[in-house]
Write a protein that binds this DNA or RNA. Structure first.
Length: 398
DNA sequence: AATCTGTTTCTCCACCTTGA
DNA sequence: TCAAGGTGGAGAAACAGATT
């Protein structure tokens, strides 16, 4: 059997064909629920892979009015299974099946979930389930997004732009015969697929429409995909984030391994922004002995400077949110939008490394929350009974 | 198990707007 | 004036729940 924890030795993607499918398809509501779980996956750690929500939050997300109805929904989703088949030389090598959600428990006003081990493993590099891209398969809202991801992302291995003829693209996306008008195809298929890939992977993908001539109204014949800039890994990819930060100071450091371990430690112990802020502080204020100053800065948080007025209001959302959880969902949506609207702006993704969202979920009535890093400032005032305020400010230099 | 009934989702299209 | 861009909605299909 293939080693599920480390399939590196199999040169997996070159040697094997694989397919992944479910016994019963997941409907919109189930996908919405899974997306909620996915966001929470960011705050899972090795010792505690349980995800929990207040019962009222989960009821309001799914628009149910009783726990009995919720349990019916959960029992139904638990009955859905993922199947996979791996082929070598066109012969079946291994196949298998696993559930998506292992269990739920209702206890004292909260609902607890355990995801299947296979899904958690799919977030860990070089495991069998990460090669099968199980996380993308489960969490992406549309099945065709998974197909596009599998086809497209490997093509970026040695190039930054990929051109795909419209016919070929429709074939990949299972839409050869439907959506004859390009406008409809773009709206219902292409944009959704891109959105899924940007939301559920570390890749920041965009596209251009290639036309027959220079006129804006010419026929679209192909799509040029562009990989803009990498996000700092997915939620679980702390090592990737540590490497990224290490690269900023690498040239000033003699003991690289020790510094790597130190950065990794502080990302886990504090958060990504904490380390980034202190690295920037040291690089801006010192020219020699960087290593020593950085250790000091990380220990005493010297880079944590006071707020400035260099921020400009970018999003304001004043609305009634029944629970802090719903507020958090909306904030998340705004942040994704900010991230996609501002070119080369991906700092928002780094918030996932901090305990940012945990704090927002715990907001109480009339409580204010003010968060600042060097590219974004987020202000929230939460009101249970009346309208709450979400304000997102962007640093003027971004 | 078969039927019906109301709801959601998917696909396509008529019609309108926009800009070269 | 033309074709792409955009909107809303019709009709079909799929689905879920209730009833027989």
């Amino acid at each position: 059997m293939l080693n599920i924890y480390n399939s590196q030795q199999f040169n997996f993607l070159k040697k094997h064909n694989f397919s992944v499918f479910t016994n019963k398809s997941l409907n919109k509501k189930e996908k919405k629920f899974l997306k909620t779980l996915y966001i929470s996956c960011g705050i899972i750690d090795k010792n505690n892979s349980e995800i929990s929500y207040k019962t009222e939050d989960i009821l309001s997300i799914l628009n149910y009015d009783s726990i009995a109805r919720l349990e019916k929904f959960l029992n139904n989703i638990i009955s859905k299974r993922v199947f996979y088949r791996i082929e070598e030389d066109n012969k079946l090598l291994q196949n298998g099946s696993f559930g998506i959600i292992n269990s739920y428990s209702v206890y004292k006003g909260k609902v607890y979930f355990l995801l299947s081990e296979e899904i958690l493993l799919s977030f860990v590099e070089k495991t069998l389930f990460s090669y099968l891209k199980i996380d993308k398969f489960i969490f992406m809202e549309e099945n065709f997004s998974y197909n596009l991801y599998l086809y497209l992302i490997p093509l970026f291995y040695n190039q930054k732009e990929v051109n795909i003829e419209l016919d070929k693209l429709k074939n990949i996306l299972n839409a050869e015969t439907s959506y004859e008008r390009f406008y409809d195809f773009e709206k219902y298929i292409l944009k959704k697929a891109i959105e899924d890939i940007v939301t559920f992977s570390k890749y920041n993908l965009s596209y251009y429409k290639m036309k027959t001539g220079k006129n804006i109204n010419n026929k679209v014949t192909a799509i040029k995909f562009i990989l803009n800039n990498k996000k700092p890994g997915n939620y679980f990819d702390v090592k990737y984030a540590a490497n990224e930060l290490l690269n900023m100071v690498k040239s000033h450091i003699t003991n690289i391994n020790e510094m790597y371990e130190l950065i990794l430690l502080y990302i886990v112990k504090r958060n990504y922004d904490y380390v980034l802020l202190n690295i920037k502080y040291v690089l801006a204020n010192y020219t020699d002995n960087i290593e020593k100053h950085l250790k000091r800065a990380l220990l005493y948080d010297l880079g944590n400077t006071e707020k400035t007025d260099k921020y400009t209001l970018y999003v304001e959302d004043i609305a009634h949110f029944k629970t802090p959880f719903i507020l958090q969902m909306n904030l998340w949506r705004h942040l994704n939008k900010v991230s996609s609207e501002i070119p080369d702006y991906d700092d928002v993704n780094r918030l996932y490394y901090s305990d940012f969202f945990k704090k927002i979920i715990k907001l109480k009535d009339k409580e204010e929350f003010d968060f600042t890093n060097d590219s974004v400032r987020i202000f929230i005032k939460y009101n249970v009974k009346e309208e709450s305020i979400i304000r997102i400010y962007i640093h003027k230099e971004v």
